[in-house]
Simulated assay, not measured.
Amino acid sequence: MGKLHRPGRPDDLPDARLLWARWAAVAVATYDRDEEREPQQHRSGYWIDDDGLHWDDCGCTWWVLKWFGDGRAVLVGEDESSKVKWYEPAIDLLAGAPEWLPRRYLQELIDDYMVGCIYWFDEGAWHRAPYPDDLADDGLDCGISALTTRAGAVGEIAEQLEFDNTDTGMPELCEQLIDDAEHGALTETGL
């Protein structure tokens, strides 16, 4: 897994298209059709829906990555390691944010103490609000680091599907899936 700074920095994240490809590959590879059919209050794991890509451990970690057209994306979420929502005085997570961000949605999450950090991708780079120098962690590392590297994404598929090194051909299959996703060659028949 990639080791990110604590607190995270925008340059810790790969290009949003690459992050999306890896995340989508993990979501597709670990999709559980039976879980989707179960009536439940809260879903766990990785998934894709109209609101974007999701990761939720049904505990203290949740993340969403969503596109907003024209090469713009938002990454929002929380890991229990984040110190942001408890920092005094409160950190304005939308400081310096562009107008296209879904401010009402994000502010509601912030007001409900649901957000550890918000990053936005615009003009080919990730950005976030400025943090105080003494902020220890925003949760980005613990929450999203597995998807920031190719090896991390491969490992995440193997971990989610409970593969180990004795599962013949599985490490190579996971590696090929991420490779196909990163190169835009992932197809339904390739699964």
Rank of each mutant, 00 (worst) to 15 (best):
M1Q: 10
G2E: 02
L4T: 03
H5N: 13
R6S: 06
G8R: 10
D12R: 05
L13I: 05
L13F: 12
P14Y: 05
A16L: 06
A21G: 05
R22Y: 04
V26Y: 05
V26K: 09
Y31A: 15
D32S: 10
R43H: 10
S44N: 04
I48T: 13
D50F: 08
D57Q: 14
D57R: 12
C60Q: 10
W62D: 05
W67D: 09
W67N: 06
G69I: 02
A73S: 08
E78T: 08
E78P: 00
D79S: 07
D79E: 09
D79Y: 05
D79M: 04
E80C: 04
S81A: 13
K83C: 15
K85W: 13
W86R: 15
P89C: 08
P89H: 12
P89M: 05
A90W: 10
L94M: 14
A97T: 00
E99N: 08
E99L: 11
P102V: 09
R103S: 14
R103C: 02
Y105F: 09
Y105N: 11
L106I: 04
E108T: 09
L109R: 05
L109G: 14
I110T: 11
I110M: 00
M114W: 03
G116C: 09
C117V: 08
I118R: 11
Y119A: 07
D122K: 10
D122Y: 04
E123G: 06
G124Q: 02
H127L: 01
D133W: 08
D137R: 02
G139E: 00
G139P: 11
L140E: 01
S145H: 10
G155P: 06
A158D: 14
A158W: 07
Q160K: 08
L161T: 08
N165Q: 15
D167H: 15
C174S: 15
C174G: 13
C174H: 08
I178G: 09
A181S: 13
A185G: 02
E188L: 02
G190C: 12
G190R: 15
